[in-house]
Design a protein around this nucleic acid. Structure first.
Lengths: 192, 192
DNA sequence: TTTACAAAACTAATGATATTAGTTATTATA
DNA sequence: TATAATAACTAATATCATTAGTTTTGTAAA
């Protein structure tokens, strides 16, 4: 009965990510996950605490990976060029890993300590890119909020087919970020 | 048996909106809705087609109401002032009707004809506000995408407690929109 | 006023889900 | 080799949404 496979928490998480990316996070059920892993549903509880816990793990992994993608994208770049690249990398991540991205954007609350920490990592990454602009800490934090709003909003709308006109989406994203950055330059010049 | 109350589709929808606003759209179940209306779950099917249909109705109503809120907010305003007011109204709507707002942002797809139509209404409203800028149609559509991304992203992150620093959120939103609008002015001046 | 019909509620049943409890078998370790 | 940890299992429960079929109510026609 029941040949034991070398199943561990990471393998389960990977399978969950695949399912989420393929079918959407709403369709990620323990039943489907167990089937994919050729075990029975209750056996999953040897590796995860339950469905909410699994979704939290997806969120955390997603945040880590999207941050890595942005870090990778800004290598050798600075200022406007770096911010633009980071924004594009964020949206590209959402396109390539839609399930993980949904997990990030649907997580019910950032209150969980683990998620808080990963989220703070993203913020501090963005703050470092902003350093050369010489903004005050407060100003920089407002800009970080703005940046996150733009890229998250764009990725989210795109993911839900919210952009229906036959208009190049990459171009829309580029313009959004560039227009914002042009405004930011003007703000900085005014010493604001 | 079963005193018949004057229950109709609109009453059911209103009750669903209340539940969603209070407990989040994830918690909106037919069981909870039936309890709130003091009927049995299957009786709901006299007024709705099912849970997916109900959620679609919430999305549609949300889109209609958020558009109305923006229209109301721009009365007597034009150009930058109008766009700023519309953006603030959008975010305020999300704050006051979080469940309806979730319904908008979680709707699985804009492919449904009814939702398409309402969504198109929002877009054409924004295009009318943009008219005085004298942009080409294509340019204006890019700006609409940018605007929607900004306000949706901001509202979404705020809703999930994504902004954790003790920093004024209204100020963050105002700066985001104003910085973008400043950049847009620069773009327009360049004839771009 | 009575009758007939449409609609709104109901009960009962089904199938999917997550979760818990308790059991068995396998693997690793002492 | 014996033991302990653990990964799988079966069985059971509770919660859902949904469908089918039934009863009752309200309204409109006769």
């Amino acid at each position: 009965m029941a040949i034991r496979q070398g199943l561990d928490a990471e393998t389960v998480l990977q399978a969950a990510i695949e399912l989420a990316d393929q079918q959407g996070i709403e369709q990620l059920s323990l039943a489907a996950l167990a089937t994919k892993l050729t075990i029975k549903t209750p056996s999953l509880y040897n590796h995860i605490k339950g469905l909410p816990d699994l979704r939290k793990q997806l969120s955390k992994r997603g945040l880590l990976l999207v941050k890595e993608a942005m870090i990778e994208a800004v290598i050798g770049k600075a200022e406007d060029e770096a911010l633009l690249a980071a924004g594009v990398a964020y949206v590209d991540f959402a396109r390539k890993q839609p399930g993980l991205y949904e997990a990030i954007s649907l997580l019910p609350d950032y209150e969980d300590p683990e998620l808080k920490e990963v989220g703070a990592g993203v913020v501090s990454f963005l703050l470092r890119i902003l350093a050369p602009y010489g903004l005050s800490e407060e100003d920089a934090l407002h800009v970080v909020r703005g940046f996150r709003s733009m890229v998250h909003g764009f990725a989210s709308l795109e993911h839900r087919n919210g952009f229906r006109m036959g208009l190049d989406r990459d171009e829309s994203l580029r313009r959004l970020l560039q227009t914002y950055l042009r405004g930011l330059r003007a703000d900085v010049a005014r010493g604001k």
